[in-house]
Amino acid sequence: MNNEQPSHSRSREDWFTKGLKERLPSEVRESFSEQQLQALKVAFGARRWGKHPVDLRGTLDLWRWRYYFVLLIGRNRRELTRREQRISRVMGALSLVGFLLFSVLVGLLVLYVLKSALGINLMPNTSLGLWDWLKSS
């Protein structure tokens, strides 16, 4: 069999085929047919997205069943459909509103505790009881 492969065919090889051939001994490297390479790709479940900054996988044993979990976090490199882009924008906006609301509530809480610690009473005979609870803890 001819070990030389035409340059146009070599440039069309996908990342899986290139990676597989790099790991094979030179005498076997070019012996696979296109059909065999495709079958190997399917058999190995080739996925390009292998490395993530956060890749947490594990199993939980609860009573008689085992559950698995996977948490992957990384940059999204997929092409999104229009619908997915719209959902992404809405979720981003909701996340921003949620974060701002949480930040405002925490800020107001801190201001209230500081006001109470300084003994400032804006409304006589009115208290949330938070300062008294914090002092007793």
Rank of each mutant, 00 (worst) to 15 (best):
L122D: 05
L72H: 06
E79V: 05
K18C: 02
R89C: 01
V28M: 07
Y68C: 04
S136C: 05
D55W: 03
L71V: 14
L108H: 10
K41W: 04
S95M: 08
A43E: 09
L72I: 06
R29E: 02
V104L: 13
G19D: 10
V54R: 03
L130Q: 07
R57A: 01
Y68A: 01
Y68L: 03
L56V: 10
W131R: 00
L20S: 01
G98H: 09
V42S: 10
G119F: 06
S33M: 08
P6S: 15
K51G: 02
R23F: 05
W133N: 03
E13G: 07
F44S: 06
S103W: 08
Y112H: 09
L111E: 12
L128V: 06
P6G: 15
V110C: 13
W133Y: 15
W133F: 12
G92C: 03
R78L: 12
A43P: 02
E13C: 09
S7V: 14
R10M: 13
S31Q: 13
Q36L: 12
L20H: 04
K115W: 13
R75D: 05
P6D: 15
S31Y: 08
L20M: 06
N76Y: 00
E84T: 03
E13S: 14
K21E: 12
Q38W: 02
V106F: 11
L24V: 09
K18S: 06
E4P: 07
E13D: 13
S31R: 08
K135D: 07
S26W: 02
E30I: 05
N125W: 09
T81V: 06
G45C: 11
R75C: 02
H8F: 15
R64Y: 01
K41Q: 11
R77N: 02
R83W: 08
E30K: 05
G119M: 07
S33V: 12
L62G: 01
S103I: 08
M1V: 15
G119I: 02
E13A: 06
R57N: 06
P124H: 09
K18V: 10
H52P: 00
S26A: 05
F16T: 05
S95I: 12
P25Q: 08
K135E: 07
L134T: 02
V113P: 04
S116Y: 11
S26H: 10
S127G: 05
D132G: 10
G50I: 01
V97G: 02
V42W: 01
N76F: 00
G98K: 05
Q36D: 11
V90P: 00
G129W: 06
G58S: 07
S116R: 03
Y112E: 11
L56R: 11
W65G: 00
N76D: 14
L20D: 03
D14H: 12
M123F: 15
L100D: 08
V106Y: 10
T126E: 12
R77P: 02
Y67N: 03
D132K: 04
R23D: 07
K51C: 05
K115V: 10
R57G: 01
M123A: 14
S116C: 11
K18P: 05
G74C: 01
T17I: 09
R77G: 11
M123S: 07
I73K: 00
S127H: 06
I87D: 04
